[in-house]
Amino acid sequence: KHCVKCNKAITSGGITYQDQPWHADCFVCVTCSKKLAGQRFTAVEDQYYCVDCYKN
């Protein structure tokens, strides 16, 4: 599998969101770069925000 963000191979520790593979380090808030894996977040038009950034 290849990460949908960076297009590099996922060798271990990847996550899946909406049936797409991601590196955990690539699945981050677009505003603050906080890792979103296992966290609550909001998706708006294929942009992902942590709860704090989305509220602001």
Rank of each mutant, 00 (worst) to 15 (best):
2 H>R: 04
3 C>S: 01
53 C>D: 04
54 Y>M: 08
51 V>Q: 06
2 H>Q: 06
44 V>T: 07
4 V>I: 13
13 G>Q: 08
41 F>L: 12
40 R>M: 11
21 P>L: 05
27 F>N: 01
52 D>M: 06
5 K>P: 02
4 V>R: 03
18 Q>N: 13
5 K>Q: 14
28 V>T: 06
52 D>Y: 08
25 D>A: 08
24 A>T: 01
40 R>S: 12
33 S>P: 10
24 A>M: 05
23 H>N: 00
25 D>S: 11
56 N>V: 15
6 C>W: 01
51 V>S: 08
26 C>D: 00
43 A>P: 06
34 K>C: 04
11 T>K: 03
6 C>D: 11
47 Q>E: 10
32 C>F: 00
45 E>A: 13
50 C>D: 02
20 Q>M: 14
43 A>G: 12
3 C>Y: 02
16 T>M: 02
3 C>A: 00
36 L>R: 03
32 C>I: 00
5 K>L: 14
52 D>C: 07
14 G>N: 15
50 C>W: 00
5 K>E: 13
11 T>A: 08
2 H>W: 01
43 A>T: 09
31 T>Y: 15
46 D>L: 11
54 Y>V: 06
5 K>H: 15
11 T>E: 10
53 C>W: 00
18 Q>D: 12
9 A>Q: 13
18 Q>R: 13
42 T>D: 03
27 F>Q: 03
41 F>R: 11
43 A>C: 15
51 V>W: 10
46 D>N: 03
16 T>V: 15
38 G>N: 09
27 F>H: 01
9 A>D: 09
18 Q>G: 14
25 D>G: 09
17 Y>M: 11
8 K>P: 01
38 G>C: 06
54 Y>S: 12
19 D>K: 13
38 G>I: 08
16 T>C: 15
49 Y>P: 03
20 Q>G: 07
35 K>F: 05
40 R>A: 11
33 S>A: 10
28 V>N: 15
26 C>A: 00
36 L>P: 04
39 Q>F: 06
1 K>Y: 02
29 C>M: 00
51 V>G: 07
4 V>P: 08
14 G>D: 13
22 W>R: 09
39 Q>L: 11
13 G>W: 03
24 A>C: 11
44 V>E: 13
16 T>A: 07
25 D>Y: 05
14 G>Q: 10
1 K>V: 03
17 Y>C: 13
30 V>K: 09
41 F>A: 13
38 G>Q: 09
8 K>W: 10
28 V>F: 15
47 Q>L: 14
3 C>V: 02
37 A>E: 10
21 P>T: 07
25 D>E: 14
39 Q>G: 11
5 K>W: 14
52 D>F: 11
1 K>T: 01
16 T>S: 14
54 Y>N: 04
42 T>A: 04
25 D>W: 06
20 Q>P: 03
19 D>H: 05
6 C>K: 04
40 R>C: 13
54 Y>G: 12
13 G>C: 04
